[in-house]
Design a protein around this nucleic acid. Structure first.
Lengths: 207, 207
DNA sequence: AGAAAATATGTAGGACTTGCTCACATTTCT
DNA sequence: AGAAATGTGAGCAAGTCCTACATATTTTCT
């Protein structure tokens, strides 16, 4: 019987100090992302991740205390990247159609390396933190982003319904992108054009 | 070494003849749906299904040759129900807003018993048939339904882009519904109202 | 009614996979 | 050279699916 430790003490069991170990951690994270994207949570076993990364299973557990902490690390990195990409696109001055087009381009780009990763991370894979509950930092920022765009284009007093609209348009985009990703069709231009139209119509309508 | 058998010979290992055994199969299917909906594919073990159903594991394997055939049975039933519900709502004569409202009502209803089931069945759970590839019967009928609605409201020559539009709106609805289901908010009226608005704007626009 | 068939039970365990450990080997830093 | 950091991989404990099978109950058939 070992003493119980608080669950989220630190992502890493041991901090990699040398360049060699930092590279090891990096390849482990990338291999994990690849497997999650291609095979889903069910195919994500620590042994397979280590094998694909080309390191021994022991090395993996030298830096990640358990399987969950590895998936948390992958998620943390991926969501940080997503937020950064979105922040670079603002609804300032540009017409709604232009905003929608830029947004779709960005979201598509964010899904072109590991197409299935986003969906698996949010839908399938368990996590210690809850990224999908309304109090997670990610969720708050994500929704605020859309709510701002909605309020901007429906030029009127910001409205509680803006947050509902934000959630709806964000989840709608999610659905289109993730289903396209599953079919290996994120780069389908016709789909992108229709998605832009969907966003433009919804955002632009001052209902 | 046993002789190889074609995979999809029959869903059932043995056909239940008496009312008692049909009830047993029924409770097994329902318990399976409950677990898939609540715990996802990862929580779906044959032992747990049998336990929740209140039958012995032996009884389960008397009718389902393996775990996959059970999930296939659950999926088959659920998708049949979904198609039936959708078929009951036609885009004939009713204005787009009315059509959208009826559609949302139906989809919400279809997700109110096992909210997470649809997503898990299509996203997580493996299957012998491929329900999400473009040649499955379900997928064909599902898309044809939306394509017809699109063509109806964009009163013009049916267009190859109608199928793209159908896929986009169907995936968008999927995304909104499934994320609402995960948050336990399928009955959120504000969300339903906004979703109706999204569909109406997109379907009704003759772009 | 009784016989036959169908249905249900549940333990025990084989074959396998999983997450994870630990004693040891190798490389890098000082 | 010595210490610290890094890397290894066989293997354990626990869980999975699924089967076997002797037994018990219920339903159907005559």
């Amino acid at each position: 019987m070992s003493t119980r430790i608080a669950k989220q003490q630190s992502v890493m069991r041991k901090e990699p100090r040398q360049a060699r170990s930092r590279a090891t951690v990096e390849t482990i994270v990338q291999a994990g992302a690849r497997i999650l994207s291609d095979e889903g949570w069910a195919g994500f076993t620590t042994n397979r991740v280590a094998e694909l990364a080309g390191v021994s299973i022991g090395s993996l557990y030298q830096y990640f205390p358990d399987k969950l902490s590895l998936v948390d690390a992958i998620r943390h990195r991926h969501l940080d990247d997503s937020i950064a990409v979105m922040r670079s696109i603002r609804a300032d001055g540009v017409p709604p159609a232009e905003f929608a087009a830029q947004l779709v381009r960005a979201v598509v780009a964010a899904h072109s390396v590991y197409p299935g990763l986003h969906r698996v991370l949010l839908d399938e894979a368990p996590s210690s933190e809850e990224y999908r509950n309304p109090h997670s930092e990610f969720e708050i920022e994500y929704l605020a982003y859309y709510a701002e765009a909605v309020a901007t284009y429906r030029k009127r007093q910001p409205n509680p319904d803006d947050h509902v609209a934000a959630r709806v348009i964000s989840d709608a985009i999610d659905g289109v992108i993730h289903n396209a990703a599953r079919r290996g069709a994120i780069n389908d231009l016709a789909m992108q054009r229709e998605l832009v139209r969907l966003i433009t119509l919804y955002i632009g309508d001052s209902g």
